[in-house]
Design a protein around this nucleic acid. Sequence first.
DNA 1: AGTCGCCTGGTA
DNA 2: TACCAGGCGACT
Length: 284
Amino acid sequence: MPELPEVETIKRGLDKYLVGHTILDVDARLPRIFSGDSKKIVGGKIIEIRRFGKGLLIDLDNKYSIAVHVKMTGQLLYKEGKETEGTKGAVLRKVDIRSLPDIYTHVVFKLDNDATLFYRDMRQFGWVKIIETKDAQEMPFFKSLGPEPLKDLTLEKFKGIISKNKTAIKPLLMDQAKIAGIGNIYANDALYVAGIDPRRSSMSLSKSEQRKLFKAIEQVLKKGIEVGGASEWSYVDALGGAGQYQNFFQVYNKKGKPCKNCGTIIEKIILGGRGTFFCPTCQK
DNA sequence: AGTCGCCTGGTA
DNA sequence: TACCAGGCGACT
């Protein structure tokens, strides 16, 4: 699920529903995606959810944390207690929480008050790790992240990153070590909003283009968060609900459709191994 | 910097 | 049947 706005939406859902619960039991059904000692978190109370790039940390009050990366199809799904079961799950649209756990559910966290947290992942690319909270920043994934848009990625830092690299601008935006959180959807859309060809060498951008791209990144990420992320594929929020950013795609997944600005047909190429969509007229 | 592998499912 | 998919890491 993927990118910053989607993971942020999950985080906010977990803030609302998961914090305060005590973990009573952990059932790791697919050991390949699970690491660490599940016994360490039993009895721990969830006190905070933190997001770094596309990764999440669920902190407990006993010095342990659950680190989660959902990669392409992972989902963190919260089901409330029996007394009110269905009032949240029933309105669900993409994943019916009442049907869990199913064959794609790989970790089940049994919580107090009859609530449950499920980690569900069709493609099994994601991971769940039990770690000591103090070790989180030392994990390779979290340690390698660059600055975050909408947080510590300032225009000055962005200009520095852009001007020091000669790689194509789109793969650079998606390099988590350079900038954390941008994935394929928002990289495509931000470059469209900024009017920049995704194949351009990063260092070839003018000062004005650097500023436009910085603003475009903030704009598309903010919009993504505002509408709860993009549920074009399997992404859902913590209650199994769909986001709406797919209705606001500028160029992502729009091959063959007319550009919203000039009507030119949107093209698709492969860049850095990923599908890349752009308007050959508006993006130079 | 590019390609492949990890997996499963949806679509042409 | 072949190719595609919000990611990432380990290879060349």
